[in-house]
Design a protein around this nucleic acid. Structure first.
Lengths: 239, 239
DNA sequence: CCGTGGAAATTGGTCATACCAATCTGGTAC
DNA sequence: GTACCAGATTGGTATGACCAATTTCCACGG
């Protein structure tokens, strides 16, 4: 994926550096001048990277004192994971598992609410995406992006923009993983069929059926990754 | 609240500037040099602020071209709201409403899962917080922080760290609002009693009861804010 | 030996300047 | 009307300098 962010280049080297050093929460990082020299960049670049890490609650800057590591695992921002995955720093198997669980939880809730609140325009949007999917499937393409579009459209039908932002973040977080999923599993056609079924449930405002469909739909993805994680147990490199 | 982040100072002035100018997604911001002069700061400060905004998906930097506004409302990071609230830029009533709904949704799911997965250590932690709450209540204090601690401890019992990160963000997002709630409503004692009931439900692993308790618990907070938002309809200044 | 005070080194916060390379703009020549 | 080229603009980056607060460390005094 390779984030286009300029500061990402330094962060990409900074995160592994912190990890290798086994720095724990509370520990102090080298000074900005030190880091700049270490990585062969200007101090400005270091400050940009640190500012980002601070916003993501990964570090804390104490004026005239130093830069300190924070308890990222529990207090860090979810966006920290998005950034990490975006620049190719692998997520741990535990993180992938937790992300998958959380995402499922959110989407199940979303489709239930979507059944109650969806308007005609939302259905039209879903239909548009499904039509496009059909076209792309016929052409033998992969469904990665249109799958995301469908799921995000479901969330959009909820009418909660913050909800949409959140689920969107989870999709950014797992884009490469999903890409790999569609490529490996060849489940594009099956996925599409399930999408159509979900669309009908939403149209009929049958929340229970929609939830059941979504659960089954996500189950397939989950098990796929659980198997992979259990098999080799290697850190996930897909983001 | 006043975030301690250095870059926050500029962002605090940058966000209102963008808003006043009625800049829409796709629009170009003034150049870095221009912004630096406008706000009377160095270019480095501007670049730090923009780097943060880019990480939060509020803007996009195109090399040798300019800085462009992105569709924050739908694609922006939830952390953008945290930052906004942290530096005192008011959230819209719609945003507050959506945040409250999403938070409720998350916490209800959390307590259900906590009933299944909690271990002895989690119960001990809940008890510690409740004991502390009792002490503070007797001393006539406000429950703001210990309330947050209780709810976060419930999420911690789920055993999903990403889940914990997420709910933590929502608490940062609403800290001042909750502070106002406990001060205005005088519901500290009632809240504490409900916490105790929830703890017992979690201890007994009675998910249905726990969920019902959490629903009622959050309902009180929700209605409080819905009334406030409906009454004056003013932008929320509490973060 | 302890601790107490203060000077020197360190550190984040900030600004000014200078270059590069890619992009964008405007006008000119065809 | 169009194709093209040169100059202005813009983000990306490094360097150097200064400030104020913190931290460190050693000398001095008890």
């Amino acid at each position: 994926m390779a984030s286009t962010e300029p500061s990402a280049g330094l962060i990409q080297r900074l995160l592994p550096y912190i990890h290798e050093r086994r720095l724990a929460p509370g520990d102090r990082l080298p000074s900005e001048r030190d880091l700049a020299e270490r990585f062969g960049v200007g101090r400005g670049a270091v400050r940009e990277a640190i500012a980002v890490l601070e916003t993501l609650r990964m570090v804390e800057r104490r004026p005239n004192s130093g830069i300190y590591l924070r308890p990222v695992e529990s207090e860090g921002s979810v966006e920290a994971l998005v950034l990490q995955a975006g620049i190719g720093v692998p997520l741990s198997p535990a993180e992938v598992r937790e992300i998958v669980e959380l995402r499922s939880l959110l989407e199940v809730q979303a489709i239930a609410l979507a059944c109650e609140r969806r308007e005609a325009a939302h259905l039209a949007q879903l239909d548009g995406i499904l039509a496009e999917s059909e076209r792309l499937l016929a052409a033998g393409g992969t469904l990665t992006d249109l799958d995301a579009a469908f799921h995000l459209a479901v969330v959009e039908a909820v009418g909660n923009r913050v909800f949409l932002r959140l689920v969107n973040a989870f999709y950014l977080l797992s884009r490469q993983r999903r890409q790999r999923f569609f490529a490996e599993s060849g489940q594009s056609a099956a996925s599409h069929a399930q999408h159509v079924a979900m669309r009908d449930a939403i149209a009929a405002r049958e929340a229970d059926r929609a939830v059941a469909l979504m659960r089954r739909h996500l189950k397939g993805v989950e098990s796929h990754w659980m198997v992979l994680l259990g098999r080799d147990g290697q850190p996930d490199r897909s983001g």
